[in-house]
């Protein structure tokens, strides 16, 4: 269907990074992120070091850096927040390009940007080198509680199905001349979201029936 091969975040490859056990990669990611977050915001050489390590792993994985960089747009809300911080923080003022900003605010914004970007890049690298269901398997290996693993694996399985459904609803709306530009049209969007929710809920019920029909006993692991 619409999804084509692999997931949108996944970059097909056979590098050692791709082949590594998913649960090892997950542990490495969590360790890396904790390390980055725990580093004081003004320890710039350390951040340079983290970036170098990350860049080395990216190079080894064969995922083009531009592929990862394009997908860092998810970080945008944090960037906006980081850019506001120097203007609203208190403390000693300093001047950058003729604009007066708060000095601690500037440091905080820098730290936020660096830590955020490193975390996002590392996560994107995991997503690019690991199929979604392998991530779920990795979590299972790491003894994540079975119900959570099941919920995640259902999410992975049905994300595209619900996404396609949403796409078809959007096409159907557009085919009848609907555009979402005018705020007066927002109720329509809300109603489609409601319809999508109900459809997904009903699908959930049908999936459950199909599971019961194949001898699934609630409380057991799938």
């Amino acid at each position: 269907m619409g999804a084509g091969h692999g997931h949108r975040l996944h970059y097909h490859g056979h590098s050692p990074v791709h082949r590594a056990e998913p649960h090892h990669k997950l542990l490495a990611l969590v360790g890396f992120v904790l390390l980055v977050v725990a580093t004081p915001g003004d320890a710039y050489p350390f951040f340079a070091g983290y970036l170098a390590v990350l860049a080395a792993v990216v190079a080894r994985s064969g995922v083009p850096p531009s592929y990862l960089l394009k997908r860092t747009v998810v970080e945008l809300p944090f960037v906006v927040f980081a850019l506001i911080v120097p203007f609203v923080s208190r403390g000693p003022q300093t001047e950058v390009w003729g604009v007066t900003v708060s000095e601690p605010g500037l440091v905080a914004a820098g730290a936020l940007l660096m830590k955020g970007t490193l975390g996002v890049l590392a996560s994107l690298l995991l997503a690019a080198t690991t199929e979604p269901h392998d991530v779920v398997r990795g979590l299972e290996r790491l003894r994540m509680p079975a119900p959570l693993v099941q919920i995640l694996s259902f999410m992975v399985r049905y994300l595209d199905v619900v996404g396609d459904e949403m796409g078809r609803m959007r096409t159907a709306l557009a085919s009848r001349g609907f555009t979402a530009r005018n705020p007066r049209h927002w109720p329509v969007i809300a109603r489609s979201a409601g319809a999508l929710f109900i459809r997904s809920y009903e699908r959930g019920e049908r999936v459950h029936l199909a599971m019961l029909s194949r001898g699934h006993a609630p409380g057991e692991r799938a």
Binding site: H133, F154, R157, R206, L209, A210
Partner: peptide, 16 residues
């Protein structure tokens, strides 16, 4: 009794 439901997306829910 093996039931095959109408929508295969309801029946096929595992990763592979």
């Amino acid at each position: 009794v093996g039931i095959v439901f109408q929508d295969p997306d309801d029946q096929l829910f595992m990763p592979t």
